[in-house]
């Protein structure tokens, strides 16, 4: 990243090749919207290019990248603020669980539960479970203490467990 900052833009391609897949997965798991996730990946690299002068080489590039990713996502979510109330969303979402096949039921329910998790909880869970980040890095991304990250991860799993149980119960 230091080289990108110093003007060698070809190095940005290296960073892109190294990270864009993980970044795409992060967005996809957070938003469940493929097209939006592709747009957001593009937006993150656009911002990296635009704001490369603000990168501090003392810090990890991945943490900086995810900070930008979170901002891009938040901007986008603000723009698309849904008009429906969460309750309606919940109702329609759980009714859709029915058409899931029994063999993959567990995974399908888990996926559903992830989607129903509040944004902040889903985010911390995705960061800790899927993105191969250290807790120190997540702390930096979220701007909180490492201890607080641990607490949040656990609470997110617990909330996921509650949703999962609820969905499984509704199913039975």
């Amino acid at each position: 990243m230091r080289q990108v900052k110093d003007g060698d833009l070809r190095k940005l391609a290296v960073l892109f090749e190294r990270h864009h897949r993980a970044l795409f997965h992060f967005f996809l798991r957070c938003t469940s919207d493929r097209a939006l996730s592709e747009d957001l990946v593009q937006e993150v690299y656009f911002r990296i290019l635009r704001y490369r002068h603000t990168f501090n080489p003392q810090h990890a590039f991945t943490a900086w990248m995810y900070q930008i990713a979170r901002n891009a996502q938040m901007d986008q979510l603000q723009k698309r603020r849904p008009e429906v109330t969460p309750d309606e969303e919940m109702a329609s979402a759980s009714s859709r669980v029915d058409d899931v096949l029994s063999r993959d039921q567990e995974v399908a329910l888990l996926r559903r539960a992830m989607e129903l998790l509040p944004e902040d909880k889903r985010e911390v869970l995705v960061l800790s479970r899927y993105q191969e980040l250290k807790y120190e890095e997540i702390a930096q991304i979220l701007g909180i203490e490492v201890g607080a990250v641990k607490v949040r991860v656990f609470r997110a799993v617990r909330a996921l467990g509650d949703l999962y149980t609820e969905l499984a119960g509704a199913k039975a």
Partner: peptide, 25 residues
């Protein structure tokens, strides 16, 4: 549950992601 999260699949990005990035660059 934590272990099972591994089994929740995720799709790969489409080819357009790469094209768009290099266009921008």
């Amino acid at each position: 549950l934590w272990a099972n999260l591994d089994r929740v699949p995720v799709e790969a990005p489409g080819p357009a992601v790469r094209t768009r990035f290099y266009d921008m660059l």
